[in-house]
Every structure is written in structure tokens, then in C-alpha cells.
Design a protein around this nucleic acid. Structure first.
Lengths: 334, 334
DNA sequence: CAGGCGTTACGTAACGTTTTCGCAAGGAAT
DNA sequence: ATTCCTTGCGAAAACGTTACGTAACGCCTG
């Protein structure tokens, strides 16, 4: 459609003012006489003027872009968080640019560098592995907010839930249903979340005076297959268990499949509870009882928090809490 | 760390050459004497020089960014495709910037505009709804490639599989297992893919001389819940069916849940076949027989194709074909 | 030996903004 | 009436690159 790129100069011409004035009405930095302002506005509309993002960034220093660092292993939970971040940015002037860390510290570092080189105005980390010092280094260049990961020293720039408490209440739900031999499929222990959930599980067991036997723990890695393997391990141990608390839904669903293959009914023989409430869990057979993390909302909050930091405006951030979603994978023992 | 931004000028200084020469070794546009080239390289290393992306874009016209238009309804299949596109970009100099159309033509248009205003060097549409003419308009501004959607007139700039053939072979698999009353849960008919899969189903039935009764079709919308509803509808009709071909895995899984609730066994009483092979499907109970679309690979191919168009270099693009993944949700009738 | 032609390097003009500076014009204060 | 602030606006200088035109040099050609 538009033959030539039309610039601020062109509209300055047709509105017969100077470039500077046009820039001023554009940014509202200095008051401009009403008639000129209108003339400018009109010219902009008439010529369908679109400011050149790059010239603007070069001259002004702000790029109106936000970097998002993801860990693209295709985990539904983190995907939801990422989408939340983008959704939060949608109503703003900022555009997201994404780089992927793939849960590898080295790549994560490169991802952040790429983004910083692109002079993003801010950075949101969706999960991540880099330690506090590594991030501090980048923090000097640009504001950073972390979501879906708890990192000591970053309490004021991160959005998380209390994983320990949530895991505890999930375990308690099992205990209230009279389960005593409750197995736990642990997540990758390099993630703080996994550790917290494990601690929450132990706390609940301890408070209920239930034994914390070694044969009830199985190491998983947050992926479905590790849930399958976990059940196979558990079965091989030949120690009784009536319930399973998995550190995320993917492993819970893997576990459910392994039980199906072993001809063990859920929930009649064994109950399962997951974590994350990823959307597929509502449609498993039976629908999975799980702990809901408001993933998308957390993402939105993260973007708001970041923009607050960039613009130096205070933003009130809600505290997020996990919530037990009761479905059909837990049965009461009698 | 770095106090000041160091520019091409600085390194020109320490290498005692002119800015232009530095730019030349940077871009390799014109040969440069070996000694100077080395001096420049050394200076760049020493000062840890990072070119300013924005100045570069302003002066040179190319922004080294690729726009990705997604339809963020959180569908695992499209998510995989998007991740594939980003993965393909990973090994290049290009950085992805994302905007979301949310399966709404109006928003999709805005998304594309945002990206075009940001002067992306090219655009990848992951799915999408806008018609050919609307896209043609944008195509004048920037190269566009479409992935996971077949659009007439765009055969040379899109990556898809033959949905009709794939659906036909899925249906045939059911027929070969002696099913005769095969129901079809249709996808949203505004998507060409859904239409093609429907046609493929019909073709298979016709060729096998099986009746195409109205009571075997149910309209869905690609989401899990519509799979649940579809089964309820089917059951209410009280006409026999022994197998279901769902237009995607999400609906297949919804259907499986509804059957579970109705105490109908899968696959003993009713067989199910899905479409997409989203990762969760391997862990459903029973694991779902489905049609695999190489989503991530298609995404990678799309990014390659786009970069080929941008740089005017021919790229050979593999043709992608669907493949039936045999798992445990289909039983033979005897 | 002059003229022509590559090759290699440099200076400088864009690129489209924002921002600093300074200068008028006008009103208030002395 | 003179001086002194405002207020509104234009000119011009950044911002960090790339690209274009051109000059210097050495070498080949006639």
C-alpha cells in the first residue's frame, strides 16, 4: 500500500511545524500550542504515520521491548506462564522478544546475553537455573523479574507460590483420607521447587506421625516417563503404598499409566495427587486431583511487576497461592 | 561490568583505522588488508565490542528479527510448531519476536501490523485465520511463510502435511480392524485442516462402501471439552458405533474421558484414534493411537524456508508426511 | 612512459528519531 | 519603561551504524 516510508519530517512539512514540535506532540514531553498540536495530529492521521522503532531506540535509548527467557522443554506449566507474560504485555506498548535456555545454564546465559545485546528494557525469566550471582551480573544492565521460581535474595523481584505449603496441604489431603503409606515421586532436585515440594511432603508426614521410610521416595525428573519408571521402581520394592504424591502432573500421569498397565485401579487401589493443574489433567482417566498454580496469572503479574520497575511506578502485586483441585483420583480408605 | 558502551568508533581508534574499515571487516562487504583486519579483530576482542543492533538496523535496513504470529490458545500442537520455529532460528543470527492473534482475525491483523511496524525481516504464521487477500497485503511489505495451515495460493510458501490423506489412512486403519460404524468428531470447520480431515474420513468410508450416516458425525471445536460433549451427543443418539476418529488428540482424550464415565471400555468396546500425536497422548490410558505430525520439524523447516526467501538462497524443504502411530486405543473386531 | 584499471582505504552522507540549546515573544515584576 | 522570567518552538547536535563516492597506490597495458 504505502509507497514510501513516511517520516516525522513529512508530517512536519504538511503540518508546517518543525520536526522537534512533532516529536514533542508525539511524546508529550513539552507543552505545544493547541492549534499546532491539532495540525500535527491531523497530519499524522492523514499520512498514516508510524514512528520508526529503530530510530527511536537509537536516539532515545529505550527500545520498548521486553526479553523473555524460556526453558523450552515443552512443559505445559511453563508454557502457560510464558503465555501469561505475553498476555500481560499485550495491553502495553512493549513487544516481547524470546530466547530459549533449554534448562541448560550455558544456553541460558547465551539467551540472556542475546536479549541484553538487543537492549531490551527489561527481562523476565520463566523458571531458569542460573544462580543468584550470575543473574546479579545481568541485573546491572537491565531490570529482571523471575517468575515460577523461588531464588533466595530475589524475593522482591520474583513471583512464586509457597511450594512447601502447597505440597504439605496436598499430602494432608491424602492423610485426611486415611492414607498412611504415601509415596512421593520427586522432581529434579536441582530445582528449588522440587526441593520445597519434597520438604512439604515430609513436613506433613512428620506432623501426622507417619513413618518416612526410604522405600516411599522415588526420584523423578518432572517428565512423564519418569512417572512410569517411578511406579515400576515402587512395585519392584514390594512394599505397600496406597497413595502417591507426584511433584508435578506430568509425572502423576505417567504414574497413572504404569498403574494401569500393572492392573492397579485408580483410585480404588491407589490414589494419586499431582501438582500444577496443567490443562490436560482435567481430562485424564480419572480426572486428576492436583494442586493448582495460577500459571497464566503469575505470568501476567510478572510482566506488570517488570514494567513497574522499568517505569519506576509502584505496582501492587497480588500474592499467589496454590489451591487444591479436588477431582477423582483420590479415594478414602476405610 | 562494562562502564561505557563501546562503539565502532572506539575500536577504529585503538586499531588506528577508520570506522568504515571496521564496518567492512564486520560485514565482509569489501576485502580489507590482512594486517588491518587482524588489528581490528584484536581490538574488538580486547574491548569486548558488541554492535548496536538499532544503529545497524537504522543504517542498513535489515533488523535481523523474525516475527512469529501465534494463536495462543495453548494448543499443544501449535505450541510444538512454534517451538520448532524458534529452534530453527536458534542457529542463525535472527531473533524471534512474537505477537499473538488468539484465533481472532482482528487481533491477528493487529499482531501482524505490530510485527511489520517493527520492521521484521520476515514473518512466520503459525496457523492463522486471515484469508489469502489479507495476507497478500502484508506480503508486499515483508516475506511471509505459513506453517501448519494449508492456504490456497500459498503452496510455495507454506509447510503442511496432506491432511486429507492422513485422515484417510487413519480411518482405513479402523476399517482394516473391521470397524464399520465409525464416528467422526469434527474440528472447527473454519479451519481448512478440519475440513480436509473430514473429507479424508469420508473418502475412506466411501471407498470401503460403508454408509456415511449423519448420526456418525459430531461437530467439535478442537478442544478437549468438545470431545466430551461429542460422546454425550453420540450416546444420546442411541445408534451403534464401535470406533471414533477424532480430528485431534485433545478431542480424542475428551472423548476417552466421556466413555470412561459411561463405563464403556477403550478399546474393548470402542476404539479411538486421534490426530497430532501431542506428547501427552503417549501417556493416556490407554496410550492413544494417533496420527503423527512432525510439528517441531515443520516449524524448523518453516524458519529455514523463510530465511531462504530473505537471503534469496534456495533451500530444499523436505516434504512432511503424517504417520500413523500405533498404540493401544484401537482393537480388532472379530 | 603516460594512461587506465583494480584494489584497498578513507571521509562523509544518510537513516529517523530525541534532546539540548538558544532565541523570540509576551507578561509580570521592579 | 526597563529588566526578568516564562512559554513555545526551531535549529542543530547527538545516537551508532552502513553505504556511497572518491582518492591513493601499484601494476599492467599500449
Amino acid at each position: 500500500m504505502s509507497k514510501k516510508k513516511i517520516t516525522i519530517q513529512d508530517i512536519a512539512g504538511t503540518a508546517s511545524v518543525s520536526k522537534s514540535t512533532v516529536s514533542r506532540v508525539l511524546n508529550g514531553t513539552t507543552p505545544v500550542a493547541e492549534d499546532k498540536r491539532l495540525a500535527v495530529m491531523e497530519a499524522m492521521k492523514a499520512l498514516d504515520y508510524k514512528p520508526n522503532v529503530f530510530a527511536r531506540s537509537l536516539a532515545g535509548g529505550k527500545t520498548m521491548t521486553i526479553g523473555i527467557v524460556t526453558e523450552n522443554i515443552g512443559s505445559p506449566f511453563y508454557d502457560s506462564v510464558t503465555q501469561g507474560v505475553m498476555k500481560g504485555l499485550n495491553s502495553t506498548e512493549y513487544t516481547p522478544i524470546i530466547a530459549d535456555g533449554q534448562w541448560q545454564p550455558k544456553l541460558e546465559r547465551i539467551a540472556i546475553s542475546t536479549l541484553v545485546d538487543r537492549q531490551v528494557d527489561g527481562l523476565v525469566m520463566v523458571g531458569g537455573l542460573l544462580d543468584s550471582e550470575a543473574l546479579d551480573e545481568f541485573r546491572q544492565e537491565t531490570p529482571i523479574v523471575i517468575v515460577a521460581r523461588s531464588l533466595p535474595g530475589w524475593e522482591n523481584e520474583s513471583i512464586t507460590i509457597d511450594n512447601l505449603a502447597a505440597a504439605k496441604s496436598a499430602t494432608n489431603h491424602l492423610i485426611e483420607n486415611r492414607h498412611r503409606e504415601i509415596a512421593h515421586i520427586m522432581g529434579d532436585q536441582t530445582h528449588q521447587d522440587a526441593k520445597d515440594r519434597y520438604q512439604g511432603y515430609k513436613a506433613a508426614m512428620r506432623e501426622a506421625n507417619l513413618p518416612l521410610s526410604d522405600h516411599l521416595f522415588v526420584q523423578g525428573n518432572f517428565e512423564s516417563q519418569s512417572g512410569v519408571n517411578a511406579i515400576e521402581t515402587l512395585l519392584r520394592r514390594e512394599k505397600p503404598f496406597t497413595a502417591i504424591f507426584a511433584a508435578n502432573d506430568q509425572m502423576a500421569i505417567g504414574a497413572r499409566l504404569a498403574l494401569y498397565r500393572a492392573n492397579i485401579r485408580v483410585p480404588q487401589d491407589v490414589s494419586i495427587i499431582g501438582f500444577d493443574n496443567q490443562s490436560e489433567s482435567a481430562y485424564s482417566t480419572p480426572p486428576l486431583t492436583t494442586v493448582n498454580q495460577p500459571a497464566a496469572d503469575m505470568g501476567v503479574a510478572a510482566s506488570r511487576m517488570l514494567i513497574g520497575k522499568i517505569t519506576n511506578k509502584p505496582v501492587e502485586i497480588p500474592t499467589f497461592s496454590a489451591e487444591l483441585i479436588l477431582r477423582e483420583s483420590v479415594a478414602r480408605i476405610d
